[in-house]
Design a protein around this nucleic acid. Structure first.
Lengths: 162, 162
DNA sequence: CTCAAATAGTTGAGCTGGAAACAATCGTAG
DNA sequence: CTACGATTGTTTCCAGCTCAACTATTTGAG
């Protein structure tokens, strides 16, 4: 099934073979496949959706477990408008709180609460497990590292030259 | 800025370093960055959005320039429900038409029309150009190939073991 | 000091895609 | 031949996101 989908998407053996487009399709499909898998695993474990995990995990790793809205939005690669509402939901769920900056009253922080850490610990093994299936199955650790390096280069190129 | 975002997302040098999560974040961010770049390039050229290009390009490479809805949905990695409406929009724009199968009256095909080919030719150079910037900048062709291989393996692992 | 421009975040409208229920058709066991 | 289950596509409803407009604050030029 999936093999066939790839074949359709890039029409193996066609005259106009474009390695860039090939790679791009591969990124899109790998991303979609893994995202889908993670989503499914979370919902079937009766846990919140993936974006919640991303927020919690990102904040957890930040100094003082909090981040300016703008920084968080950039880390998650969504717009600030989208983030405001996403954070609103997590706050409503009691996982985060909004704190403010003394020296610049424009900025507000999304700050992790204990309940958020708790939920994060609950979600982490599920995500870790799914990622392990997706990655370790066919990739060595070195390959994963190399993969990451190349992808970051791509991202750099895509962001840099506006 | 972007470097910083990466640093935030994976908190360089943290105690709990998870190569899988690193790689996963890299995929997500690379995908988002390139998608954003493509979107921007298309809209600033007053062209339709990226999904339209994906539909047209996929159909263009298919035999007889048409595909069953289900096949197309799988190639684009979206649900069939979503595809129905996406195709509706392209039909309304006169780029596609819906054709039917003689032998199995359940299936309907999305079929490329000349106007669709024409638009595709207009969009292709824009997409090609952006992808070239994102990929060739820092990657050799061999690396791009290798990248694709690894990503397809990941996708296989993610799809396979349900 | 003052005011225009820049920056941070929020809000509202609109669009897109997903999940689930539905309709139509096919295939197959009996 | 019939009926039930599987498959294909559509439709309905809804959640989440983006875009653009807006508010509040800060910064910098004059």
């Amino acid at each position: 099934m999936s093999e066939q989908a790839t074949a359709i998407a890039r029409n193996n053996g066609a005259a106009d073979f474009d390695p860039h487009r090939e790679a791009w399709i591969a990124i899109t499909q790998a991303h979609a496949a893994v995202t889908g898998r993670l989503q499914e695993a979370l919902t079937s474990a009766e846990l919140p959706p993936l974006p919640w995990f991303e927020v919690l995990a990102t904040l957890d790793r930040a100094p003082e477990q909090r981040l300016k809205m703008g920084e968080l939005a950039e880390a998650l690669v969504i717009t600030r408008g989208g983030l405001t509402k996403l954070v609103d939901r997590l706050i409503k769920a009691g996982l985060l709180e909004r704190t403010f900056c003394e020296t610049d009253r424009r900025v507000s922080y999304a700050t992790l609460l204990p309940a958020g850490v708790e939920l994060l610990e609950e979600m982490r093994p599920v995500v870790r497990g799914e990622l392990a299936v997706a990655f370790s199955a066919n990739l060595t650790v070195e390959q994963a590292e190399e993969l990451r390096t190349m992808l970051e280069r791509i991202r750099g190129a895509a962001c840099g030259t506006s």
